[in-house]
Deep mutational scan, measured.
Amino acid sequence: MPGGGPEMDDYMETLKDEEDALWENVECNRHMLSRYINPAKLTPYLRQCKVIDEQDEDEVLNAPMLPSKINRAGRLLDILHTKGQRGYVVFLESLEFYYPELYKLVTGKEPTRRFSTIVVEEGHEGLTHFLMNEVIKLQQQMKAKDLQRCELLARLRQLEDEKKQMTLTRVELLTFQERYYKMKEERDSYNDELVKVKDDNYNLAMRYAQLSEEKNMAVMRSRDLQLEIDQLKHRLNKMEEECKLERNQSLKLKNDIENRPKKEQVLELERENEMLKTKNQELQSIIQAGKRSLPDSDKAILDILEHDRKEALEDRQELVNRIYNLQEEARQAEELRDKYLEEKEDLELKCSTLGKDCEMYKHRMNTVMLQLEEVERERDQAFHSRDEAQTQYSQCLIEKDKYRKQIRELEEKNDEMRIEMVRREACIVNLESKLRRLSKDSNNLDQSLPRNLPVTIISQDFGDASPRTNGQEADDSSTSEESPEDSKYFLPYHPPQRRMNLKGIQLQRAKS
């Protein structure tokens, strides 16, 4: 015994090295194993092979420090690593049964499904019991997946119906949107047309105001020219009257000059006056001389005659003075006559000038009245044309509004008919989907599995289990394997941990 101590140590070291070499393959693929292994699927088989106990299973599945599946799978690998070579062998058998691809990844061999460990530990009855539990578990999982698949199909059909409904609603909204954009385009076109009409109206108003201003300026210029013409006519008439007055005065002077006595007659009258003065002096001298030589009687007679002569001279002087006064009065009367005649001529000139001015103003008033009548006639014609244009424009607008209203009513009726057609199509689609759903539900009910399987069917299934373990590994792997896509769409199922009653199965096998 003492001599065998070193050999035992060498043997233990060799086993430990082999164990480390075995687990080295697992550690190399630890990331892939932790990512894809579900500990809840492996722990029943590991407990059946007595590699882990209930406490280890509870620690792996329910520990609060292991929230994710990767953490739980890593903890399970750590626990199996502590179990040595047996933990490695049982772990590979569980991978061979549940995850053939991972088994091939770790060992590089094809899975054979021999279950040597569980046969050694529990015997064939334990293997049968384990396989029966796994089959029931798989059936329950398949039923749950079928239910989930039916629910998802129903949800899918519902979503398809909602999608069709949303599509129809979208078509309806597109119809309304198209109608909205069309009405918006019509409104924009009408606004552009309105702005264009306003611009045209403004341009016409500006043109009309400009023409009116030009016409008023032309009328004012015409009036100024007419006033200048009238003033020139007035000056012409005044000059004609002055010329006529000057002509009359010149004719009067000419007549006075023609009626003036001649120079010879004046000289002859002056000679006669001198001769008479000479004779008068001679007679006076004779009379003076006679007075001195005459007697007293003759002197008395001469005195009487002288007195008579003096009286006659006085009378004559009075007559001469009277004649002079009369001549002066006649001259003054002639001057007054000439003055009055001049005033008369001036008044006649003024009267004729005023008459011509009156005629001029009368003509001017007639011209202004004619212009006013023409302006009123043009204004009435413009008003009439404007009223006709406004009436025609309003009539066109009324007809346009009428046609637009008819078009809008027809478009609304068309839209309502399209919407009604879309709604009826939606109703038809809904009815078809309901009919299809009812038909599929009836087919699913016919094809669904019963909840409680008979014992004979279970025994028959387990009677055929042994050949399947040898020759149909691919079928078992397809039913027991969970793909990543299934984990996305289906909830994980945790079967209840219970042991099955095998009395009925044993009785059935005894009868057979």
Rank of each mutant, 00 (worst) to 15 (best):
G4S: 13
G4Y: 10
G4M: 11
G4I: 13
G4N: 09
G4P: 08
G5A: 11
G5P: 11
P6C: 11
P6M: 10
E7N: 07
E7K: 11
E7G: 12
E7W: 11
E7A: 12
E7R: 13
M8S: 12
M8T: 11
M8P: 12
M8R: 12
M8W: 10
M8V: 14
D9E: 08
D9A: 13
D9G: 12
D10N: 08
D10V: 11
D10R: 07
D10L: 07
Y11L: 10
Y11I: 11
Y11M: 13
Y11C: 08
M12S: 14
M12E: 04
E13L: 13
E13K: 11
E13C: 12
L15I: 14
L15K: 12
L15A: 11
K16Y: 15
K16T: 08
K16E: 10
K16Q: 14
K16M: 14
K16G: 10
D17F: 11
D17N: 12
D17S: 13
E18L: 11
E19N: 11
E19A: 12
E19C: 08
E19W: 15
E19K: 12
D20R: 06
D20E: 12
L22A: 09
L22M: 10
W23T: 11
W23Y: 03
W23L: 02
E24N: 02
N25W: 01
N25A: 11
V26F: 00
V26G: 01
V26D: 00
E27P: 00
E27G: 01
C28G: 10
N29T: 02
R30E: 02
R30A: 07
R30H: 01
H31K: 04
H31M: 08
H31G: 03
M32R: 10
S34L: 06
S34P: 03
S34F: 04
R35M: 04
R35N: 04
R35L: 04
R35F: 03
Y36C: 14
Y36L: 10
Y36R: 07
I37M: 03
I37D: 04
P39N: 01
P39E: 02
A40F: 07
A40N: 07
A40K: 06
L42S: 04
L42W: 00
T43G: 05
T43I: 08
Y45A: 08
L46S: 09
L46R: 08
L46M: 12
L46K: 09
R47I: 06
R47C: 08
R47H: 07
Q48R: 08
Q48Y: 06
Q48L: 08
Q48T: 10
Q48F: 08
C49W: 15
C49P: 11
C49N: 15
K50D: 12
K50T: 14
K50E: 10
V51N: 08
V51L: 10
V51C: 09
I52H: 06
I52F: 08
I52R: 08
D53M: 05
E54T: 11
Q55F: 13
Q55M: 07
E57P: 04
D58G: 09
D58F: 00
E59D: 03
E59H: 11
V60D: 06
V60P: 01
L61F: 13
L61E: 06
L61G: 12
N62V: 01
N62R: 05
A63E: 01
A63C: 08
A63N: 14
A63P: 02
L66G: 00
L66H: 06
P67A: 11
P67I: 12
S68D: 03
S68P: 03
S68A: 11
K69F: 05
I70M: 14
N71D: 04
N71A: 14
R72G: 03
A73N: 12
A73S: 11
A73M: 04
A73F: 01
G74V: 12
R75T: 00
L76G: 01
L77P: 02
L77W: 03
D78T: 03
D78W: 03
I79A: 02
L80R: 02
H81D: 03
H81E: 07
H81V: 07
H81N: 06
T82C: 07
K83F: 02
K83C: 08
K83S: 08
Q85T: 00
Q85R: 12
Q85V: 04
R86G: 11
R86P: 01
G87W: 00
Y88Q: 12
Y88N: 09
V89S: 09
V89M: 13
V90S: 12
V90D: 00
V90N: 10
V90I: 14
F91M: 13
F91V: 02
L92P: 08
L92G: 01
E93S: 02
E93N: 06
E93V: 11
E93R: 15
S94A: 11
S94W: 01
L95A: 04
L95H: 13
E96A: 00
F97H: 09
Y98G: 03
L102P: 07
L102A: 03
L102K: 12
Y103S: 00
K104Y: 01
L105T: 09
L105Q: 00
V106G: 01
G108E: 07
G108W: 06
K109E: 00
K109Q: 00
K109A: 00
K109M: 00
E110P: 05
P111Y: 04
P111L: 03
P111I: 09
T112H: 15
T112F: 09
T112W: 01
F115W: 14
F115T: 09
F115M: 10
F115S: 13
F115K: 10
T117P: 15
I118H: 14
I118V: 15
I118L: 04
I118Q: 14
V119D: 15
V119P: 15
V119N: 15
V119T: 15
V119R: 14
E121W: 12
E121K: 14
E122D: 15
E122T: 03
E122L: 05
E122S: 10
H124M: 12
H124W: 12
E125R: 08
E125L: 14
G126K: 11
L127M: 15
L127I: 15
T128E: 12
T128S: 05
T128W: 14
H129V: 12
H129R: 01
H129M: 07
F130C: 15
L131N: 10
M132R: 05
N133R: 00
E134K: 13
E134W: 15
V135E: 05
I136F: 02
I136T: 09
K137R: 11
K137H: 06
K137D: 02
Q139H: 14
Q139N: 14
Q139V: 08
Q140L: 14
Q140G: 10
Q141C: 03
Q141S: 14
M142L: 14
M142C: 14
K143P: 06
K143H: 12
A144W: 11
A144E: 08
A144C: 12
A144M: 09
A144K: 12
A144F: 10
A144G: 12
A144R: 09
K145R: 13
K145A: 06
K145W: 12
D146N: 13
